[in-house]
């Protein structure tokens, strides 16, 4: 929710911390309001589903676990913390103007799987992100990073995906 000028999680925001006489609470941005502070998250989750938000594991699948060294595990250490709260989506000025924009959290999820040493679908993932409504729509405003209650950085993840695409020399859009 938008609470006194910033997107925050209402469940963990302390009134004292706001240090204000008046508290103004508004629903999450860019999404249709169903009632009062409740928004319809359909678009948000459609974007999430669009980017193939699941591990496509390398073959052959081992009998026990995949071996993933601690240094490889630490590469996904942050991005896995995303709780899909939508704060970044509400704060993103691009999400407000481009209805088809995938948005910060979906692209962060893309990066989460791109950096997972167990994943085998780099090409497919870059193809989805490499779109005029994908990573190239991000204007690096960094509002997402500013509001993320989990202190994640979707804008940085997006720029990393851009670099991956450019490296392959296949920019589209």
């Amino acid at each position: 929710m938008h609470i006194n000028g910033k997107y925050r999680l209402a469940c963990e925001t302390q009134i004292l911390e706001l240090n204000a006489e008046t508290i103004i609470i508004q629903p999450l941005g860019h999404l249709p309001v169903l009632r009062d502070l409740i928004v319809d998250l359909t678009r948000f989750f459609e974007n999430y589903r669009h980017i193939k938000p699941y591990l496509i594991g390398k073959s052959p699948i081992p009998e026990k676990e995949y071996i993933q060294l601690p240094e490889d595990r630490s590469k996904i250490g942050n991005t896995i913390d995303c709780i899909l709260c939508g704060s970044c989506f509400g704060a993103c000025p691009v999400a407000g103007t481009d209805n088809a924009y995938l948005g910060p959290s979906a692209l962060l999820k893309t990066e989460r799987f791109l950096t997972d040493s167990r994943d085998a679908a780099e090409e497919e993932r870059l193809k989805i992100a490499n779109d005029i409504h994908g990573v190239w729509r991000c204007h690096s405003v960094f509002s997402c990073q500013e509001v993320c209650p989990k202190e994640l950085n979707p804008a940085e993840a997006i720029s990393k995906i851009k670099k991956r695409i450019l490296k392959k020399g296949s920019k589209k859009g």
Partner: peptide, 20 residues
């Protein structure tokens, strides 16, 4: 069941050898 969910992508913490 644990190996299954690991194969599905569950980000378990790792030992130095890369096991769960």
């Amino acid at each position: 069941r644990i190996y299954e969910i690991e194969h599905w992508g569950c980000p378990f913490s790792r030992t130095d050898e890369g096991r769960i």
